[in-house]
Amino acid sequence: MARDAQDPLVRLRDVALSYGRQPVLDGVSFAIRPGEFWFVLGPNGSGKSTLLKGILGMLPVRGGEVSIDAARVPRERIGFVPQRGEFKDTLPTTVREFVTLGLVGCRVQKSDEPRHLAWALERVGLAGFERRDYAALSFGQRQRTLLARALIRRPSLIVLDEPTSGLDPQAQRDFLGMLAEMTRAGQLTVLFVTHQLPMAIECATHLAVVHGGRVRTGERREIVASREFWELFPAALDSPAGAPAAAGEAAAT
């Protein structure tokens, strides 16, 4: 059967996720299509990272089904950016060694690795940093190396777990701008967990709001126009991005 370009890359059907016997999420259903920029929002401990882990197969699904279109997004074309790198400062490593660890699980010729590395570092604004000591990088630069470690896989789908927390506002904008550019160019589909509402409201094409063990999903306009959203995130009303959306909702009602 011919596959439509807009068929979902990732589809969740009635998914339930738990840690041991402790249920975290239930009845999660949504689909992510190519070129979409998803933000996952929710209070602390609501299950945002759990949702990502379920999608990536890092946590067993207790019910329902997570299906990823393996023909368009094989495992090696999925990039993951954690909140923090776990690499210990007491170990010696260079940006080159750290970033190329992202190639684990990818079929890349040894001779092509420098090209992939240079491409990924250029995307994150660290061109020429190959031989720098990882321990000598600033926090912001380390976060960018985490992104480069995901990008070196040339991903079709990239999953990010609050990678901008701790970055200054300008660095956050640069980080997102770069992702948005790649998404617009049709190279990337993004699933981004964040606490930063203004950023999400400004950049998202779609939102997933995690709250009370449930996930409400939809296009940004639809989610932001809902009363439930503003009840859950009243602080967003104060944000520059939130005000017009709230005004839109008031006009609609």
Partner: peptide, 14 residues
């Protein structure tokens, strides 16, 4: 990768 960053290793499919 498994030794230094097991979560990343899991995400990469190991």
């Amino acid at each position: 990768l498994v030794v230094t960053d097991p979560e990343m290793a899991r995400a990469n499919g190991l």
